[in-house]
Design a protein around this nucleic acid. Sequence first.
DNA 1: CTATTGACGACAT
DNA 2: CATGTCGCCAATA
Length: 111
Amino acid sequence: MKIHQGKFTDLSVFISQVLAAVKKISKGRITTYKFLARAVGQPKAIRAVANALGKNPYLIKIPCHRVVRSDGRVGGYCLGANKKICLLKKEGIKIEAGGRIKNFKKVIYKF
DNA sequence: CTATTGACGACAT
DNA sequence: CATGTCGCCAATA
């Protein structure tokens, strides 16, 4: 289903909304799939949000590496979890050896 | 139309 | 703390 809306032409409304939200996350901040789902008005469409990011066609424009799990782990990434961790570290996010985000609650971006 | 698929989450064990 | 189960939902086959 393709709909012309906003800047993300050629994408479903759902995905457009998700990407638009992710785009707003500032450097050094992170958010969760859960918050994103809530941000687009569908608190339960968490997995769908994750899938949407996986299809992110604007990897350069959309910082989808700033979206993590709500349990404190980084979650997945189209280029590999390792890559995601590297990117986050470069932005100042501390990640423990076990893959857990340090000060998770403090760095989280709430909508 | 139905079935399957995940970058997930909450809860039980 | 580590696993497993079940629920969720858009997209896709």
